[in-house]
């Protein structure tokens, strides 16, 4: 589904991603793990095109090279991006936020509609006309995911969906991701919460200093305390 090779990315002169390589198979949920500042968000931003990959980088999505394309073109190919900071349009109501995300690629059999999304996130159904700025953090997190799903992506990039959420909401998030996977969407998410990652993901990849250091199933990670100690513990 997604093959990344030799991905290099910079902020100004700071070299953040170094020849990063990663591939995501159709239908799987892959979690990127790593400490603060490891380069998880930068990887996701490079895929959607918000950070421009350096020349020579290769990002192939369904056998098409997308490195260097403008974000809106990448999104239109079927990649949905949910940013870490959520970036809700605070002036717009819930329904209007969903409208911004709406796009219907022809191939999707059952497109996401506000009704389907309200079934997935019942909290949102109760505040259709509320401005995004007057929602709690958890509600905003649901809205940002719902907004991206309105674009009917086949690959969903989720940047730390559990960050700063109450346990009940984290549980809802895990269920939502399961439902998204059920709907046939491939998911690449970044996480710091190992427990949450283990709950939702099929496979894990660990980033450190812009390089993938380890890949494997979550069971394998659980059986390798030295890997966790080296790359994940603070």
């Amino acid at each position: 589904m997604l093959e990344i090779a030799r991905l290099n990315a910079f902020y100004g002169r700071a070299h953040i991603l170094r020849d990063l390589a990663l591939s995501v198979a159709r239908g799987e949920v892959l979690v990127l793990l790593g400490r603060n500042g490891a380069g998880k968000s930068t990887t996701l931003k490079s895929i959607i095109g918000l950070v421009r990959p350096a020349p020579g980088s290769s990002i192939r999505f369904r056998d098409r090279e997308i490195a260097g394309l403008a974000p809106h073109l990448i999104a239109r190919l079927g990649i949905g991006y949910v940013p870490e900071e959520r970036r809700i349009f605070t002036d717009l109501t819930v329904m209007e936020n969903l409208e911004v995300g709406r796009r219907s690629p022809p191939e999707v059999r059952t497109p996401w509609t506000p009704e389907r999304l309200f079934a997935l996130f019942p909290n949102l159904a109760r505040m259709k006309d509320r401005p995004g700025g007057r929602m709690s953090g958890g509600e905003q997190q649901m809205l940002t995911i719902a907004r991206t799903l309105m674009g009917n992506p086949s690959l969903l990039l989720l940047d730390e969906p559990s960050e700063g959420l109450a346990p009940v909401i984290v549980e809802q998030m895990a269920e939502a991701i399961a439902a998204v996977k059920q709907a046939g969407i491939t998911v690449l998410l970044s996480e710091q919460n190992l427990h949450f990652a283990a709950r939702v993901a099929d496979r894990a990849a660990i980033v450190e200093k812009g390089v993938i250091r380890w890949q494997g199933s979550l069971a394998a990670l659980d059986a390798a305390p030295e890997v966790k100690a080296q790359y994940l513990s603070v």
């Binding site: 918000l50 974000p71 999104a75 970036r87 349009f89 605070t90 002036d91 936020n97």
Partner: peptide
């Protein structure tokens, strides 16, 4: 609606495929 959204955060609007 897109204009209002872009007034606030046009990069996010682009990332949503607009």
């Amino acid at each position: 609606i897109l204009v209002r959204a872009a007034t606030q955060d046009r990069e996010m609007v682009a990332a949503l495929g607009v």
